[in-house]
Amino acid sequence: MAAAAGPRAGWKELSLLNANEARDLFAAATEADPASREARLGAAISLLSVQPRTDGNIATATQLLEALRAESPNDEEGIGATYYLARIQQLHSSAPDRPAAVAAYRELLAAHPGNHYAEMAAPKLAVLLLYDDVPRDEWERRVAEIETLIPRLTATEAVRDTRLVLAGALIRLRRDHARAYPLVTACLEANLVTRLPHLNALLLQAAESARQLGNTPAAITYYRRFLGEFPRDIRADEVHRRLETLEQKPRP
């Protein structure tokens, strides 16, 4: 019955965080159709979340992904396998290999521009490069690499998240509102931010950055938008006060 359901039933279970059930369904689907690369990709990926988590499962997933990539590195499953091998090096392995993950993401972006998995790699690369303890000039070189990467991205999620990862790092690590502000507002103006808690934080960030940069009209716009979207937020009363102060200020 599980085999008849095909890989889709496995993805359905995995989407509900039921990795053990998904693993069994993918195994049945692979047995029913050994040529199904989708089922084999599912089998490898579900192993990354099977409980209890073991190094053995991660190693088996790595082998399955390497086999998929070796067979056909340029089809969707092959590129997906390359991406998840990098994710294992970054996140799933009990001994992460940061330089290897960075190299793999760079390679994906160079080899498969516009591909779904390559675009997914962009914000991951930005996180790894920017949240690292390196000298200031090296950090600036990394910022430049991400800034160069952004215009080449096409997927909405990749553009949005790479910009926001960079903006977040500029604020958190350098308090650099001038460079972070346009990155945040580009996402807000295009309505790319979909999660409400994230929208809440970014609207305030944009308003505060605009205020610090002396852009009073923009600060007023973002504060107003914040109050419109989140009128009962615990910061709303203070935002009202800041808005009143800004509105009383003579416009430049």
Partner: peptide, 17 residues
Amino acid sequence: TQTLRLNDTSIEAVHQL
């Protein structure tokens, strides 16, 4: 980190669906 690992595979599942 545990949550990120779990969601990583769940995200791929939703992508495939």
